[in-house]
């Protein structure tokens, strides 16, 4: 027996906004009959506000509850507000879902996303941020449940998923024959590697780019600050991560110069360029 929250039970017992809107402004669909759950969502949008929403769901208790609460969450909201809703928001609104049932909230998110995409097309409106890398859009990772790389990517991003099992709970991918589990692991690795890369982007600068960047930071950020105190700094040389500088003016010979060097110059360069930078002063 699933440990469903009171809210989930209430929503599958008495689903809100069941049905179809005949002249809907946007219709979204997710899942399939063969996969065991599917959802259709209908939106009425006036002046950029969702004035009505209805759903039809084939699925278990948590799938119906996710669809039902989603319609409640979006009625009265602007399209931009609705765009920001994630599967996590749906699950949170329901007071949580069992881990194995998180894919129900993902299905709600996907149907909503599909509806908005199709609304965007109807309005001849394209949000550039919404555009996918084309090769990613079509690539199906899990053939059993028709899960694309994009869907897995979104689930990782919205829920901070880290294991293949979590991906299966949220998207169903890998839950049947299991042949795609290695690919899912690769996607997880790529995702976190990419995030890390963004953090470490600077450290992958070419040596020439690095010299230019350090020089520019010293000239434009550090030097003006020191000049305020009547001192200055000159870049002498860069050797790997060692940045050799000369302090001038009031800074030179100041007993706080070491503090200036470590606490200000080195910290600034570490944050902006590379955490491994060491600043060395020459006379």
């Amino acid at each position: 027996m699933w440990d469903y929250s009171e809210k989930v039970i209430d929503h599958y017992r008495n689903p809100r906004n069941v049905g179809k809107i005949d002249n809907a402004d946007a219709i979204g669909q997710a899942g399939s009959l063969a996969c065991g759950d599917s959802l259709k969502i209908y939106l009425k949008i006036e002046n950029n506000i969702v004035t009505d929403a209805k759903f039809q769901t084939f699925g278990c208790g948590s799938a119906v509850a996710s669809s039902s609460i989603l319609t409640e969450m979006i009625i009265g909201k602007t399209v931009d507000e609705v765009r920001k809703i994630t599967n996590k928001d749906i699950a949170d609104q329901l007071g949580g879902l069992p881990p194995e049932k998180m894919h129900c909230s993902v299905m709600g998110y996907e149907a909503l996303e599909d509806a908005l995409k199709n609304y965007g097309e109807m309005q001849d409106y394209l949000d550039l941020d919404e555009l996918r890398e084309p090769e990613k859009t079509e690539k199906i990772v899990c053939n059993c449940f028709g899960v694309t790389e994009n869907m897995i990517w979104d689930a990782i991003k919205q829920n901070g998923l880290k294991t293949v099992e979590e991906i299966t709970n949220y998207t169903k991918a890998g839950g049947a024959c299991g042949k795609c589990r290695n690919i899912i692991q690769d996607i997880i690795d790529t995702y976190y590697h990419k995030e890390k890369k963004e953090e470490e982007k600077v450290s992958t600068l070419s040596p020439a780019q690095k010299i230019l960047k350090i020089n520019s930071i010293i000239e434009n950020q550090i030097s003006p600050e020191l000049r305020k105190d009547g001192g200055d700094i000159t870049l002498i040389d860069i050797d790997g991560n060692k940045v050799i500088v000369k302090l001038r003016g009031k800074c030179s010979g100041c007993k706080n110069s070491n503090l200036t060097l470590k606490a200000f110059v080195e910290t600034t360069l570490k944050e902006a360029v590379d955490p491994h930078i060491e600043v060395i002063e020459v006379e």
Binding site: K172, G175, A176
Partner: peptide, 11 residues
């Protein structure tokens, strides 16, 4: 025999 009941994802 539904998938959802068991949490196995497959019927």
């Amino acid at each position: 025999g539904s998938a959802c009941t068991s949490g196995s994802l497959e019927p």
